[in-house]
Amino acid sequence: MSAAAGTAWWIRAYRIGFAVLGLVALLWIPLRNMDSATFSLTNYLSYFTIESNILAVVVLAVGGVLAPRGPRWQIFRGAVTLYMLITMVVYAVLLAKVDVMLNDRWINDVLHRVLPLVLLLDWLLVAMPRRLRADPELIAWWLAFPLVYGIYTLIRGPIVDWYPYPFIDPRGQGYVSLVIGLVVLTVVFAVLAVAMASLGDLPARWRDRRSAD
């Protein structure tokens, strides 16, 4: 029996449905602004929100069509869910009133709220065969992408004189405040990663408990 055949049809259906919704939301702004002289596709793709949502659409689409259940997929799925959780938390705490190129309310809600919640609920409710351990190696692997993103942004920012988010822009706050803020965010991200790995074990624990009973 294939992995997809072993996954409930309604799980595959909502994954595909939200993957389509996410794809439409991601394409809406570039397609609408294709002829605008002020729109930069490179800048658009340089937002962590956009990058994490692209990965989320991939996870939902592959999870809906193929429903893989291997350990590598489980780790990748957990990583993308973490990035979407970071997107939701950072937006709610730091960016809710900041212009991040998503002026359409429905796109803003889909990318910052709806898809992160879908990924999180899918992670919490759909059990994978292998239980994760929130060890330092896993946490470091999961946090590699946000780290690379931060380095990329700080290198590219002075070159193009543009930064996607105020908290990673040294021009107004200076590098000391920037470093302090990034250290605090790194700690928060690490805590979220540990929580993600621990919460991802819940469905497997429930399954094992039912089997024991």
Rank of each mutant, 00 (worst) to 15 (best):
D161T: 03
L26C: 10
W73D: 10
S177V: 00
L31K: 12
V114M: 11
L102N: 08
L124N: 08
V188P: 02
V100C: 09
A204P: 06
V160G: 02
P158E: 03
W142H: 03
L94Q: 09
V58P: 05
P170T: 01
V184C: 06
P170N: 05
Y83C: 05
Y44A: 11
P129D: 03
T186N: 04
D109H: 12
I107E: 08
Y149W: 11
R69M: 11
A190Q: 04
R205F: 11
L94H: 09
L124T: 08
A96N: 09
A212P: 06
Q74A: 15
P116D: 07
A92R: 12
G150V: 06
R12N: 03
T42Y: 15
T153W: 07
G172H: 11
L117D: 06
L60G: 07
R205S: 08
A193F: 03
A19D: 04
G6K: 14
L45F: 15
R72T: 10
A212E: 13
Y47R: 05
D135N: 14
V100M: 14
F39N: 03
Y163A: 00
H112G: 04
L124R: 10
P164D: 00
A127G: 15
I29F: 14
L45C: 14
Q173H: 06
A67H: 08
L192N: 03
K97N: 13
I75H: 11
A56W: 00
T38S: 15
S177M: 08
R156D: 04
P164W: 06
A96L: 10
S198N: 09
V98T: 10
W10V: 10
D169R: 02
I107W: 01
D104M: 12
L138I: 06
K97Y: 11
L21W: 04
L124Y: 07
A193S: 09
N108H: 13
T7S: 11
L55N: 12
T81P: 01
L102F: 15
G174E: 00
D201M: 04
L154K: 06
S46W: 02
S177H: 09
Q74R: 15
L202I: 15
V80H: 02
L119I: 04
W141C: 08
L125D: 07
L202A: 13
S177I: 00
N33D: 15
S52L: 13
W73Y: 15
M101A: 14
A3I: 00
A79S: 15
R105T: 11
V118W: 05
I86R: 02
S2P: 11
G6V: 03
L21N: 06
I159P: 00
G157S: 04
L102Y: 12
P129M: 08
V80E: 01
L202M: 14
V194R: 05
L26F: 08
L199P: 03
P166D: 00
D104G: 08
V126D: 01
Y91E: 04
D35C: 10
R130E: 13
P71C: 10
V118N: 04
W28K: 13
G6H: 11
N103F: 12
A92I: 10
